[in-house]
Design a protein around this nucleic acid. Sequence first.
DNA 1: TGTCGATATTGACAGGCGTGAATGCACCTG
DNA 2: CAGGTGCATTCACGCCTGTCAATATCGACA
Lengths: 136, 136
Amino acid sequence: MNVECHTGAVATSTLPVVSAPRSGASAACCAPLTRRPLSAEAATDLACTLKAVADPARLRLLSLVAAHEGGEACVCDLVEPLGLSQPTVSHHLKVLVEAGLLTRDKRGVWAYFAVVPEALNALAAVLAVPVAASAP
Amino acid sequence: MNVECHTGAVATSTLPVVSAPRSGASAACCAPLTRRPLSAEAATDLACTLKAVADPARLRLLSLVAAHEGGEACVCDLVEPLGLSQPTVSHHLKVLVEAGLLTRDKRGVWAYFAVVPEALNALAAVLAVPVAASAP
DNA sequence: TGTCGATATTGACAGGCGTGAATGCACCTG
DNA sequence: CAGGTGCATTCACGCCTGTCAATATCGACA
């Protein structure tokens, strides 16, 4: 497992989800995981994005940011409720941004983060099992 | 991060998804991640299940099993396409089973694995962003 | 310009995790 | 019963990662 996890695009495929917020939009937009085997490369990419989400601190960050007033929050809003140090929170936020799940908007001294719904929805779409997954 | 990741139930909440395949069904069945902050405990549980999925080998396993004839596959069907050793494949399968994402059915000498659609769908449901996540 | 406050980066450490070799176990078959 | 086969477990190793302390960077403001 030495994967780099570059930008955060998970098999961007050919059709972007909505309008590619950054470099590579988000998670595999239209590959229902089940149905047919993933290629090793596609699996690696998907795993990169999932790894970004598979952490309690980052899940709470996503949750906190989304639930925050205006749909955005700055680091100072997040440090206390998480109970982690500021550098650690900053680190997790960076991971989420690089995975395309969060956007960073620096206004003055503050950095405001907001969730990218398309990214989360794309992830959900990959995991979801289509109605007839095993019935050809 | 020292979390145990016991059975694989992610905040089973009160209403089971379909009929709890094992001990604790699967992933948080009805908590849209966004909307309101996750508790530390809920986040830990969710992360446990997500960690089980956030691995290239295990993603491919899920994919291979689901796409396999009959919707089930035994270890010997999976070792070669994955390119990993049999013990490693067995290890990954165990992780997926303990996360409630796969079922193990030992018939004679062979162990047949099948995906638990409810578990994957529940995971997807948690990640998906409801239509109006930031508009109260 | 100098200082303060908010955030990001670096360095270092401990623990977790993916991996394979070797081995054990259960079940079928002769 | 003996041998073989499919799968699980144990052990050990190395990389990855989450965390914090210390420090750097950048913008606001007097």
